[in-house]
Every structure is written in C-alpha cells, then in structure tokens.
Write a protein that binds this DNA or RNA. Structure first.
Lengths: 386, 386
DNA sequence: CTATTTAATTTCACCAGTAGATTAATTAGA
DNA sequence: TCTAATTAATCTACTGGTGAAATTAAATAG
C-alpha cells in the first residue's frame, strides 16, 4: 500500500476524524480540530464530505462552552454502516449484525459438529445471513462486509484458514468462498485477535494503546493490540502461547514436548487429568468438585490458576502493555476466578517493578466479543479502502 | 507529532528515499521510484534536495540495464553524517564514531567502577569524545548526535535512566547532561534494544522485519524490532524477560519470586550456584570445568542452555519473528554454545509448527553491536527531525 | 544511422492543508 | 437593552508536495 501521497494523507485524516466522532460523539468540529491538531478548515471539509456520503450528520443539539457561539454537534448516522460478525468454533457458529458502535443489532446461530466441511459451514452461514436480513429488516446497501473470527492460524491477507485444530480445517479459502456466496467483502481472523480489538475499541481496554488479551478456555492464547492494530507476527501466529514451555520436566503435551502451558490450564487437559481419578465430563463438574473441597480438584484448579498468573507475568514482562484482559470460557463461566488470579498476580507472581505498569481487567463483551470484533475488523477494512 | 500534513508526508518520503539509498547504494533514481511507488518526479526532487544538503551525490559510475540510457547512480556521501555511539556497562565505557553505514570510524574506551557517579561518567565520556575528535581528525560539523546504550530501564523520550541495576543508577538525566557538556543532541536507550536495531540494519538480521534479539550474559533480556522500529512497550520495559517465571517451584530470585529465568542462566547466578560446590570466580573457569567433564559444571551449564532454548521457544511463540539473534557475553566467549542451543531448539524445545517460521542466528556485530546501534539510533533521531 | 528503449528532467495542473479574514451566534457585563 | 468579548464555522487566498505528460538525454539493436 502506498504511504506517501496526498491521497493516503487524506484517507488517514478522514479516518481519524471518523474515529473521533465514533468514539466521542456528539462532538463539535472545533473540538475535533483541537484534538487532532488539524486546522478547523480541514476538519470542516472532512465533516461535510462524511455528511454527504451519509456517514455522519449534524444534530439539533448544541453545546455551549460558556461564552461564544454554540457549537453544532456531529453524530454518526449509526445505521450508515453495518457489518456482519461471525464466530466459528467447534460446536456452533454465532452470527450477528454489528453497527458502527459495535452494537449487536440482531443475531442468530446454528450448531455444527467437528466433522462439518468448510463448504457446508459457509453455505449455512450464508443462509443465516439471508434469514437475519429479512427477519430484522436490515438495509442490504448498508452492509459493508463480513468478518469471521475462529480459533487457529489464519492468513489474514489471503483470507485463508491455514490451520485450525478446533475446527479440523486446513488450508481453507474461507474469505473467497464467503464472498462468492454472499457477494460481500469478507475478512477472516483469529478469534482472540479480533476479540482483543473489540475490547480495546469498546470494551474493558478502552483507551489503552498496548493491550494484551489472554484467552483461557478450550485452548490457551493471547493477542496483542499495538497502536490500535492487531499484531500478527510474520506467520500470523503471534501470541500462540499454548506451547510455551512452563515446566521442562512436566507432563507430556500432544505436541510431543514436555511441560507446555496448555497441558496445565486448558479445559480438555484439566478434564483428562481429573478423569484419572474420577470421571468428570464437564468443566462445571470439576469446579463443583472444587467447591465441595475435593482435594484433587482443588489441586488441579489451583495449579491452573497459578499458571494463569504466571502467564500474566510472562506476557507482561515481554509485551509491557498497559492493560491485560482475561477472557475465555473459564472466566466466563466462573467469574470468581478473576479475583483469585489477580490476587495471585499481585501477591506472588508479578515482578515488582511491573506491578503498577498495567491493569488486569475482565473481558467486558463476553460471548459477543468475537462477533463484535470480527464485525469491527470488517468495518476497519472497509474504511481503509474507502 | 503531527501526522496529517504535507510536511510530514515530505519528511516521510525523504526518509524512505534516504534509507533506500543507504541500504542499496549505488542505486538509480528510476530504481528508487519503482521500489517506492513514488513518481520519478518526486524521487528526482528529493534526490536533488539531498544532494544540495550534502547527504548524497551522483557517482561517475553508470549501470546499464541492457538497452536505453544508462542510469546515473546515487551514493551516500558517507562522511556526511557521523554520530557517536556509547556503550556503558558496569566496568567500562566504549565510545565510537559511527558513519551512516554503521561503520566504526574510530573508538576509545575507559574503565569505570560500579561506584562511579553519573556526573563523573558523563564528564569522562565528554573528554574521550574530545580526544577522539582530535586524534582521528573528525569533522565536528558532521556530528549529528550521541547515542548511549546501557543495561536498564530507560525513558527514551525524556532521556532519563529510570533504573539500572548494573550501573547502580536511578533517575539519571543522562541525555540532558551529555547535551550540556558536549553541545550535541543525545539519546539514551537500552543496550539490547539498540543492539537489536543494529543487527537488523547491518548485522545478522539484515532484511528481517520482525527481529528478536536475546542477550545472555550478566543479565538476561530480549529486544524486539517491528517494521524497523524498536518496540518499547508502555513503560519502556518490553522484553525484560529476566523475571519471567520458568519454574514456579524453582530457586528463589533476588526479586523475591521463585524460579525466575535469570536465576538459571545469567552469569552471576551460574557462578554463585557453582560456588556452593567449588569456588569459581569467572565464567571461563566454569566452562573449563565443564570441558573437563566435571559433573556439576555440566549439569549447571546444560541446564542453562536448555533454558535458553526454552526461552527461544517462548519468545518465538509470542512474537512470531522471522529471525532470532543470540548475543551476550556467554555467546561471545563460548561460540560453541550456539550450536548446542540451536540443536536443543530443533530437537526438543521448539513447537513444531513454528520450526520453519524463523531462523536462529548469532550476533554478527559482537562487541561493537551496542556502539553501532546507539550511534544509529542517534542518527535516526537526527533524520526524523531534519 | 535510424528506430527503439530507458533514464532523468521539466512543465504544468491538481489538490490537501493552512492562515487569516469574515460571518454567525452567543454571553457577560455596562 | 446594547456593546464588547468570545467561540464556531466558513470563505478566500495561498503554499507546497505530488503526479502525469511532455521533453531531453543517452544508450543499443539491427
């Protein structure tokens, strides 16, 4: 992408103005100019451009700052842009329509099983989208694209799912097929990465500019947002901490190495460990055992929580973020562990000089994080091109 | 800094053109235009500007691409810009004059002891700089700034050494004092971070765009270069992996936590562990014991090497770089460990899907890495402002 | 020796952004 | 109530970087 001409500059400025309106609406032109350092003239021009194109509008409201002419306030025309966010995992797909603010306008879902082919899944997604459009009376012209978030390694540029253990997919040209079936632009990205973006844009890390999100659930992963951009690394696998070694003399992992982080904290590992003593089917049962005070359950879960705290320390030491978001099935289902983990962090595991450099927060968007995030990624893509 | 006006755009373009000339000289205007996507007009204008300002010049040489007019080639006037790189550690300071290419024109050093005050050190640095200028007949007008690299947490923006265990300093306004004493612009940065930049610009990671450098010596640390920029994190402590937890039931670290990485692999820890069995003064003695086959020495060092390999895996899992550089006293003094570590990586510790995503290389600049790096950082700063 | 190809420069138009003047709207205080 | 001060938004003239196309320059193939 060119980065050196006036066109790029203009786009950049349009985008900043748009973002500010999005985040701080209602806001006056003057305030935008002050904030960005642009001249009022420029802001005015951009705003009228955006108005003409139907993205924003001047409201009736007026704010007075004491003396002087009242500023007329600009707001998003929030139905101006709608995107579709899709969350794919082993057992189901969730689909939602997302507005510019990241609100879920309406949503649907369908169950799937791990054997389902990509083709079948894509077809089903397209169907549901059609249904939802009719059902919720969505204006088709407003839809700017589809974003899909799923667990796995994804080549975002190419829109290809390189590899997803959870879905059992390999080298699937997901974006292309979706585009063919729906006629909409499609983006595919890793679920944790889009979730992190969503949390930073409108969730619990709002205002942060170095955010790390940790996901503790069926898998273990992390995602890093730098300056509002998802950090992906060279092969799109940045943040794949599941196979970091935390105990070289520890348990064997499926991957053939010993002591991988995920063998201590992901749900399947916890269940299979537990099952050596007593058959436990679900993570709920395991936590129930713990609540009942069963010794081995306490041991397993306490160890997992300790490793989570250690992971926080290690991630913070490397990325030095200002905000760490805890998310994933374990935190969604058992919110009480959040306190336990943060306590462990501050009392035992975080290197003292770093203790005040960041805050630990819980994911705020919960089950909707991925569809909001992937929807917003789709919008980002749209705005970068328009 | 403004990022939205023509001025910024121009600077940006000047910089890109300059960088390309720096890295690929001799090169024709046409080639630069093709590479950057800028119009020939723009490139021509920038080149003549740079020529007037005395940064580059047109050479006699001409390259023919078969048919057509031969292109006149542009080269750096490599004496045009000189900066000073300073490496500070506990026992000494190394000072060198660095040209645009990162060549060391001449260098000097002085010993210091850990008790030396910042003031004394700065004064001594200024003295040596004066001596070197006279001795090597350096053109003062060409000197664009001083860069200092040292171990510790540094507030680069403010030029303040927040904290350096090695030097025993705290909140030292180093950049400001240096500027006062020498009349030159000064930048201070972490030694590993500048070394990493140097390795990427002209060392073993040339051409990489996601580089991680690991330093194994008196301390343990890492540095990350993203898109040619040093990644610093929010409080300038990104990459401080010394206190990541690698064994929650492991040895106590000075920091009060258990099982910090550095307790297994940094030189002081190795020596103090060894001394429990036999008084060992230097790392050379310890390695000699190992070469002699002494059991405890082999154990200690093998364990250290294993943890280094583990560190590589963990760092790669998170940052997903295309290049990992191993550096530091241990690798400089005992180059043979490089092979051992890489072997451990590929046979045991690297998660298989990541094995082909990066290369492990040795630092190429060795003892000069830090002065070159800090000198180049000073130049970067200069070019960003001019 | 001419036609063709490539390089570099020059001319000119375009347009994003700025500064400063102008118009509009509002309030504090005489 | 009226005026001066204040803030917002727009209008106008200008600056300056970039790109397109024409031009000039230099080389080679045949």
């Amino acid at each position: 992408m060119k980065k050196h001409d006036q066109d790029f500059m203009k786009r950049q400025n349009r985008l900043t103005v748009f973002q500010i309106i999005k985040n701080e609406q209602p806001i006056s032109r003057a305030a935008i100019a002050k904030q960005t350092g642009m001249s009022p003239t420029t802001v005015s021009r951009i705003v009228s451009e955006l108005t003409e194109e139907g993205y924003v509008h001047e409201t009736e409201e007026q704010a007075s700052a004491g003396r002087g002419r009242k500023s007329s306030l600009i707001r998003l025309l929030d139905t101006a842009v709608i995107s579709i966010g899709v969350e794919l995992d082993r057992h189901q797909a969730n689909i939602g329509f997302i507005d510019v603010q990241g609100n879920v306008l309406c949503s649907g879902n369908f169950p799937r099983s791990s054997g389902d082919t990509p083709e079948a899944t894509v077809a089903r997604i397209a169907d549901i989208i059609e249904e939802l459009i009719l059902e919720c009376d969505i204006d088709r012209r407003r839809i700017v694209g589809i974003g899909v978030g799923l667990p796995g390694i994804i080549d975002v540029e190419a829109g290809i799912v390189n590899f997803s253990v959870q879905l059992g997919w390999k080298n699937v040209q997901l974006a292309e097929r979706l585009k063919e079936l729906t006629g909409l632009q499609a983006v595919v990205d890793n679920e944790l990465k889009v979730k992190a973006l969503a949390e930073q844009l409108k969730g619990s890390a709002y205002g942060s500019n170095r955010t790390v999100l940790l996901g503790f659930g069926n898998g273990v992963g992390s995602a890093l947002i730098l300056e509002g951009e998802i950090y992906r690394g060279v092969t799109n696998s940045a943040g794949e901490i599941g196979h970091t070694t935390v105990d070289p003399e520890g348990m064997m992992c499926d991957c053939g190495k010993a002591g991988c982080l995920q063998t201590y904290i992901n749900i399947p590992s916890l269940l299979s460990e537990a099952s050596k003593i007593k058959p436990v089917r679900t993570i709920e049962e395991l936590f129930a055992e713990r609540r009942a005070g069963t010794r081995w359950a306490c041991y397993l879960i306490d160890r997992a929580l300790a490793y989570m705290a250690i992971t926080i320390n290690n991630v913070v030491s490397m990325y030095n973020p200002d905000s760490v978001i805890l998310s994933g099935e374990i935190l969604d289902k058992f919110p009480e562990v959040y306190e336990e983990i943060t306590n462990l962090c501050y009392t035992q595991y975080i290197w003292e000089p770093l203790q005040d450099s960041f805050t630990i927060v819980r994911s705020k968007l919960h089950e909707h994080g991925v569809i909001i995030g992937s929807g917003l990624v789709a919008q980002d893509r749209y705005f970068q091109l328009n």
